Computed example of a mutant assay.
Amino acid sequence: MVDTVPDMPTLDIADAEGLEQVADGRIMLEGLPNTRDIGGIEGAHGRFVKHARLLRSGALAGATERDLEVLADDYDLRTVVDLRTEDERREKPDPEDALVDVRFDHVPVLNTETLGITHGGGLRDALKILRQVQDDPAKIMMEIYPRILLDEASQRGFATFFEDVLATEEGSVLWHCTIGKDRAGLATVLLLQVLGASPKAIMKDYQATNRYVASRTQEIMDALASYHLAGKLDDSIQVINSADPRFLGAALDAVDREFGSLDAYVEKALGVTADKRAALQARYLTDDPSA
């Protein structure tokens, strides 16, 4: 999955002081740079997504003990939906043993073989990915995004994601891929659509990832530079590690052509019926934007 370049170091970007959230819902953790609470976003009928119920993230392998305590205690974490492939999970497994009261569901969305992109560990495999996309990385990503939504395996994965969200009656559910940009980003787009968020609010949340992967992107470029492999690859790294509106736009345009609308897609392809939509809105929306 072109969600990030594999096997590169994760930065600890929060200090030990604050766990406070900023306006876009970021949860300040020590080892997880892109974990966010989507609470507070306006949804259907002028209501708002409840806080501390719906969390999007990158992989949890970098979480510190303190991070896991925050998720378990402050956010009452009950369910984790892992959208990564089996290879990705094997390489950097989630800390399931440390979250014994949390249900983990492995729900792969698409895979690198389907995309024709190899995925392994280490710098050599990272370079393979970069060289495959470096001629026109934006074009490649604009081809990949529609396939994430239209692939039958992906649709089964996203359908299971919705079942997991609906099944989490109390506490919070967290979903993630590798850095929380593409697969987790699209899952969030779909959920916010079902909850009645506006296109503007959905795009704002999607692009917020860019604030939190910039440091990781720089780390990757620095690693390549240390091997004298940077230069023209820098632009490719910047593009594939970005949450670019063109990528999301390409996916939504493809869905419109295939299904007529995103609402029709979530109903026909993912099985989110009117009753399930109403149940999700009843559970996760509130009249109080601070609740």
Rank of each mutant, 00 (worst) to 15 (best):
V2M: 13
P6C: 11
D7A: 14
T10C: 06
A14H: 09
D15I: 00
V22C: 10
G25L: 03
R26T: 11
E30H: 07
E30F: 11
L32H: 03
P33Y: 08
E42W: 00
H45Q: 12
G46N: 02
H51T: 10
R53M: 12
A63N: 04
E65W: 02
D67Y: 05
L71T: 07
A72M: 03
D74R: 15
D76L: 10
V81F: 01
R84N: 12
R89N: 12
K92L: 14
V100Y: 05
V100H: 08
D105Q: 13
V107E: 05
V109I: 15
V109K: 01
L110D: 13
L110H: 07
I117L: 15
A126K: 05
L127K: 04
D135S: 13
D136R: 10
A138I: 08
I140N: 10
M141N: 09
I144C: 07
R147D: 12
L149Q: 05
E152D: 13
R156L: 14
R156V: 01
D164Q: 15
V165H: 04
L166T: 08
G185V: 00
L186G: 07
L186C: 11
L190V: 05
L191T: 00
V194P: 00
L195G: 07
L195R: 06
D205V: 04
T209I: 03
Y212W: 11
Y212M: 05
Y212A: 09
V213Q: 06
A214M: 08
R216F: 15
A225M: 09
S226M: 12
A230P: 02
A230Y: 00
G231K: 01
L233T: 01
S236M: 06
D253W: 02
D263E: 13
Y265C: 09
Y265Q: 08
V266E: 04
A269G: 10
G271W: 02
V272P: 02
A274E: 14
A278V: 05
A278L: 11
A279N: 06
A282S: 14
Y284T: 01
T286F: 02
